[in-house]
C-alpha cells in the first residue's frame, strides 16, 4: 500500500516536472522575437511597441540565462503560478478550473453510460453464450475499429444534422451533453464489455463457482456471494487501463463538439501556441490522471485485499 502510494506520488512529481520542462522547451523554441509575438497576441497588433515587448521579456524572463529561466519557470509552477493566457490575457488557473469542470461532467456522464451498457451486455454474453455472444462481440469489434472521432462524426451527421434531435455542438443544456457523452460511452463500452464478459465467463467456469452450487446455494445466491466480487476484480483493474482511452477520447470529443473542456482547451492552445494554457491544461490532465489512477488502485485493493495481506 505504502509502495503503491509512493509510486503514484513520484508520478505526480514527474508529471509536474515533465510538463513544465516540455512547455519550457516549447517556449524557448518559438520562432522570431518571442517577446514581440507574445506582446502582440496579448495587447493587439497595433499596440505593440518596444516598451510592451520589454515588459513581456522581463515578465517571462526571456532575457535570462536559459538555466536561470528554467529554474524560475519551475519555481513558478510549484507555486501554482501558471501565468496568463497569451491569447485572452486571463489567468490560466481560472480557465483551467472552468474547463476541468466541464470535462469532469462529460467524463462522468460518459463513464456512467458506458458502465450501464458494458456490464449488463458483458454478463449477458457470458451467461447466454452463443449466438448472442457472437453477435455482441462482432458488434463491439466493429465499434472498436472506429476511432472515437469517427463515431462522433457519424452521430453528428445522423442525430444532429439529419434527424435534428440534438444540437450539433456547444454546451449548456442537457441536450448538448447527450451526443458527446454517448460517443464517449460507446467507444469505452465496446472494449469494457469484453472485459466484463471474459471475467464473468472465467468466474462462471471456475471450480469455486461450481462448488458453491454443490454446497447447496442456488444459482442466484452463488452469483451474489461468489460471482459479483470475483468478476469485479479484473473489471475494476481494467478501468485503470481505460482511463487512458477516456482522456484521449475526451480530447477528441471535446474538439469535435466544441465542448469547452480541458481537451478542447489543450488542442486549441496548441493550435494557437498559447504556451501558458498548454502548460495549464496538460498539467491539469496529468494530475487528474494520476489521481484517478490512485483511486482505481485503492478500489482494487479494497475489492481484492489478497496482495496486501500476504
Amino acid at each position: 500500500m505504502k509502495a503503491l502510494l509512493l509510486k503514484r506520488l513520484l508520478q505526480l512529481i514527474t508529471v509536474v516536472w515533465g510538463v513544465g520542462t516540455l512547455t519550457f522547451v516549447l517556449m524557448r523554441s518559438l520562432p522570431g522575437d518571442m517577446a514581440y509575438r507574445i506582446a502582440a497576441s496579448r495587447y493587439g497588433q497595433d499596440n505593440v511597441n518596444s516598451d510592451a515587448a520589454a515588459l513581456v521579456r522581463e515578465e517571462l524572463g526571456l532575457n535570462q540565462h536559459p538555466l536561470e529561466a528554467y529554474w524560475h519557470w519551475l519555481t513558478d509552477l510549484l507555486q501554482f503560478n501558471l501565468g496568463n493566457s497569451m491569447v485572452s490575457g486571463l489567468p490560466v488557473i481560472e480557465s483551467v478550473q472552468h474547463m476541468l469542470g466541464h470535462s469532469m461532467l462529460l467524463a462522468f456522464a460518459g463513464l456512467m453510460v458506458s458502465i450501464l451498457i458494458a456490464i449488463p451486455l458483458g454478463l449477458l454474453s457470458a451467461w447466454r453464450g452463443n449466438p448472442l455472444d457472437s453477435v455482441l462481440m462482432g458488434l463491439s469489434s466493429a465499434i472498436r475499429a472506429m476511432p472515437v472521432f469517427v463515431i462522433g462524426v457519424l452521430f453528428v451527421l445522423l442525430f444532429a444534422l439529419h434527424l435534428g434531435w440534438f444540437p450539433v455542438a456547444g454546451y449548456g443544456t442537457f441536450a448538448h451533453l447527450v451526443l458527446p457523452a454517448v460517443t464517449l460511452a460507446l467507444s469505452l463500452a465496446a472494449v469494457s464489455n469484453r472485459v466484463v464478459r471474459d471475467s464473468a465467463k472465467q468466474t462462471f467456469r471456475a471450480a469455486f463457482y461450481q462448488f458453491s452450487k454443490v454446497k447447496g446455494l442456488s444459482t442466484w445466491q452463488t452469483f451474489q456471494r461468489h460471482g459479483v466480487r470475483n468478476i469485479a476484480v479484473p473489471v475494476v483493474a481494467f478501468f485503470g487501463i481505460q482511463l487512458v482511452s477516456m482522456i484521449e477520447g475526451i480530447v477528441m470529443i471535446e474538439s469535435l463538439f466544441s465542448w469547452p473542456g480541458i481537451g478542447h482547451g489543450l488542442a486549441h492552445a496548441i493550435f494557437a501556441r498559447d504556451i501558458p494554457v498548454i502548460q495549464g491544461a496538460a498539467l491539469a490532465m496529468g494530475v487528474v490522471f494520476v489521481l484517478l489512477n490512485t483511486l482505481v488502485d485503492l478500489l482494487c485493493l479494497w475489492i481484492d485485499p489478497r496482495g496486501v495481506e500476504q
Partner: peptide, 9 residues
Amino acid sequence: ALPGLVIVL
C-alpha cells in the same frame, strides 16, 4: 504518468 495522446500533443 501522462496519457499517450497528451504526450504526443
